[in-house]
């Protein structure tokens, strides 16, 4: 069997509908909401603030600390246990590594910028949604950053290169599936996150990279629009 038409009917290089909002959490220094299809992420940024426990302090630079968390009711089927697990720890770490190239925290020695990402609803691509939300929230917090960062999962389902896989496609059983989350800083083309799950050939991977650039530019435009929207309404 060949994968001719996507389960939800969109084009192969089309993402699910995206919605972004900045400043959704009042008490946070910066916050954002990011929805891509059935995946929803909230990000809250606090800081730069004093870092505890103090043994983590770095006198040369401020640090970034991310926490990725899926809410108990966010999955499909069984309740997700609220404790940190191997998967959420890994994603927290890769989120931090995806965001840190944007920031310059050298002006804040011994301090920390905390990023909390909560996912009330997930349908694949949650780490990418988390990074997108965090990027908006960091800008909303007024931090110095060289650009925005956006992330999206691309991959292969059967013989087709697809953008933004959903759960059904990840679980496709009649052929090879590759799932490649990519985060990129569009102005420099720096890739800050690249993971892969599945099987793909070299040439197909090249095509994935090529397609990712366009998609990421589109998402960054949506992110910027969300930030501007926050101040438009008030005027």
């Amino acid at each position: 069997m060949v994968y001719k038409k996507r389960y939800d009917g969109r084009d192969f290089n089309e993402t699910r509908p995206i919605e972004a909002k900045a400043g959704v959490i009042e008490k946070a220094d910066g916050s954002a909401y990011f929805r891509i299809g059935g995946t929803v992420a909230y990000a809250a940024v606090y800081g730069p603030r004093q870092l505890h426990p103090s043994h983590l302090q770095d006198p040369r630079t401020g640090i970034l600390r991310c926490k990725y968390n899926m809410l108990p009711f966010s999955g499909r089927g069984e309740r997700i246990r609220p404790a940190p697990n191997r998967r959420s720890k890994e994603i927290s770490m890769i989120t931090e590594k995806a965001l840190i190239p944007l920031l310059n925290l050298e002006d804040y020695p011994n301090a920390v910028v905390d990023v909390f990402i909560e996912l009330p609803e997930t349908n694949a691509g949650s780490r990418c949604a988390g990074i997108c939300a965090a990027s908006i929230a960091l800008a909303d917090a007024g931090l110095i950053m060289k650009d925005m960062v956006a992330a999206v999962a691309l991959g292969k389902v059967d013989d087709k290169i697809v953008v933004d896989l959903d759960y059904n496609e990840e679980a496709y059983e009649d052929g090879d599936v590759a799932d490649i989350p990519i985060a990129m800083i569009p102005s420099t083309g720096e890739i800050t996150l690249l993971q892969m799950d599945g099987k793909i050939t070299k040439n197909e991977f090249r095509e994935v990279l090529k397609t990712s650039k366009k998609t990421i530019q589109k998402i960054v435009d949506i992110q910027r629009e969300a930030l501007l929207e926050r101040y438009k309404v008030k005027k």
Binding site: L143, I144, L227
Partner: peptide, 23 residues
């Protein structure tokens, strides 16, 4: 290029941004 969110301030040749939020 702007490196933070803020209000753009152009004074002759000098360009800066004034932050809206932050610590």
């Amino acid at each position: 290029i702007a490196s933070r969110m803020g209000i753009l301030n152009i004074n002759g040749k000098i360009i800066k941004t004034i932050p809206l939020k932050g610590r």
